[in-house]
Simulated assay, not measured.
Amino acid sequence: MSSKQAKLSKWPGCAAAVWGVVFAIPSFVWATGSTFGAQSTVSPSLVKLAQDRVPWFVAVLVLTGLLKVFGAVVGVSLTQPRGRWLSRVAVFCGGGAAILLTWHGGLFVVQGVLVKTAALVVESTELVNWYLYLWGPWFLAGGLAFAAAVGQYVRHRADRRTLTRYGAVGALGALALSVAGVATGIG
């Protein structure tokens, strides 16, 4: 290990890990049927699904909570040099998370700005502030944390070209899935 690899800063990966754990908590809480924190910040139709403990929605909440915990594990994985296989997986997943979260948060912010400036009209504007000032920036912060963690990790590796390709494939794959989800009305 070179001295350059030894200087890998841990804060970006730790920030991504903390972001993942903090963001997982509401998913698990809402999966129990509690709507603490959701009543005024999330779409009423989603709150109703959580309150009614609709089985498929509870499963979605648990799955998203587990994915967020997995994101925390990826963040931790990006805090120190790993073996070749684990490095590639961590950079692939971290690159995907960076783009997915940044794209998602950016959509919330752009839509909120468009609604606030009356360039876009929506039926209900009661949640616009929450998505513009809370959820959008929260997703952006997560995306930037993962981007910084991946960048920091790759920068200090001897195999940075290979890792950069893995990160790019993860990022492009996540972007393609997200764009397809938005285009089909799923995401």
Rank of each mutant, 00 (worst) to 15 (best):
S3T: 14
K4A: 11
S9T: 13
K10H: 08
K10G: 06
G13L: 10
C14I: 14
A17W: 12
A17E: 11
V21H: 07
V21E: 00
V22D: 00
A24D: 02
W30T: 01
T32Y: 01
T32N: 09
T32Q: 04
T35G: 02
F36V: 02
F36Q: 01
G37R: 04
T41I: 02
P44G: 09
K48D: 11
K48S: 13
L49V: 05
A50R: 03
Q51P: 00
D52S: 12
P55L: 09
W56A: 06
A59S: 10
A59Q: 09
T64Y: 09
G65P: 06
L66V: 15
V69M: 05
V74I: 15
G75P: 13
S77W: 15
L78G: 07
L78T: 08
P81W: 10
G83N: 15
G83M: 03
L86N: 08
S87R: 07
R88C: 08
V89I: 15
V89N: 04
G96I: 05
A97M: 13
L100H: 08
L100Q: 06
W103R: 10
H104V: 06
G105F: 03
F108M: 07
F108I: 01
V109R: 04
V113H: 06
A118K: 14
A119W: 15
V122D: 07
E123N: 15
E126Y: 10
L127E: 01
Y131A: 05
W135E: 04
P137H: 02
R155Q: 14
R155D: 12
R155I: 04
D159K: 13
T162N: 08
L163E: 11
L163R: 11
Y166R: 09
Y166M: 12
G170S: 12
A171L: 09
L172Y: 05
G173R: 15
A174Y: 07
L175V: 11
A176Y: 10
L177Q: 07
S178M: 09
V182R: 11
V182T: 12
G185F: 03
